[in-house]
């Protein structure tokens, strides 16, 4: 497999993102606004208290700033495959000498790299100046955070991939992806840090992939996990990627079979 065509798609998706400047400025503004709103809410909730259940205000702030930032970078084009199925171009696309999955990863990465540089970092700087976030626990932990964040991206990608495959059977996936975004928002710890979840909820979430997306990297960043725990959590992330990807891949194969039998 040669990489050149994938790199071309990555580059194109990066450049396409940069074409819409106004949209881009607005989305930075919206991220900053969301951060401020959350900051205000938590400031009110904390009041004069220093900490709740051993969690300081600074930790909570760092959590939602980092996870909202990652949320921006991890944004997937959930309409990639559904769009191609809808307009029928999926068929001819399959005849091309390149993997559609590979192209999907490349295009997602292209826009993610753009958003990382021109959206995440500026928003983070603004948040740092206006609110302030905790520094990483140590340079070592920061490295681990980056690795874990990359794995979190993988989990997010495979969820999006698997859900997009449903478009072989349903006409619109809009409601499914909206539901996905809501569920991820709640259960990944973006809005409500998972520290504050009731114990029964915590037990359920342990068997779901959502905490692997943002919460694991943030916990590593804050230095809440020991070396062994980091290894364990990263392994869990890898296992989730594999499980969800395999499910998606089975759906993908079934979908392609459906396409050649029923036509598309």
């Amino acid at each position: 497999m040669r990489l050149a065509p994938y790199i071309a798609y990555l580059k194109k998706s990066f450049l396409r993102k940069s074409a819409y400047r106004f949209d881009h400025l607005m989305s930075i503004l919206s991220t900053c606004l969301r951060i401020f709103i959350f900051w205000e809410i938590y400031r009110t909730l904390y009041g004069t208290r220093q900490e709740v259940d051993g969690i300081t205000m600074a930790m909570v702030t760092t959590n939602f700033i980092l996870s909202m930032g990652l949320d921006v970078v991890f944004g997937m084009d959930d309409n990639f495959i559904p769009g191609k199925i809808h307009d029928g171009s999926i068929a001819t696309e399959l005849l091309r000498p390149m993997s559609i999955k590979g192209r999907m990863i490349a295009e997602n990465m292209g826009s993610s790299v753009f958003k990382l540089i021109f959206h995440f970092i500026p928003a983070l700087l603004i948040a740092q100046i206006m609110i302030g976030i905790l520094p990483p626990a140590s340079p070592m932990m920061f490295m681990c955070f980056l690795i874990s964040a990359l794995l979190g991206y993988g989990v997010m990608w495979s969820i999006s991939f698997a859900l997009q495959m449903l478009s072989f059977w349903v006409i619109t996936t809009w409601s499914i992806t909206t539901l996905k975004n809501v569920v991820i928002n709640i259960f990944s710890g973006t809005m409500l840090p998972l520290w504050f979840m009731p114990e029964w909820m915590d037990r359920i979430l342990r068997f779901l992939p959502f905490s692997s997306i943002y919460f694991t990297p943030v916990q590593i960043y804050l230095g809440q996990l020991s070396g062994a725990e980091i290894l364990e959590k990263c392994c869990i992330q890898i296992i989730w990627i594999l499980i969800i990807y395999c499910v998606g891949d089975i759906l993908w194969k079934c979908g392609q079979r459906k396409l050649v039998v029923q036509g598309g």
């Binding site: 040669r2 050149a4 798609y9 194109k12 396409r16 029928g88 068929a91 001819t92």
Partner: peptide, 28 residues
Amino acid sequence: GIFLTGKSNLENQDTAREALEMLCHVYR
């Protein structure tokens, strides 16, 4: 090489030149 009506090989957002350049990458 295949062309089917209604199943474009080109991407709407691209210019003619870009679309063909992209295919040149895809087909090496």
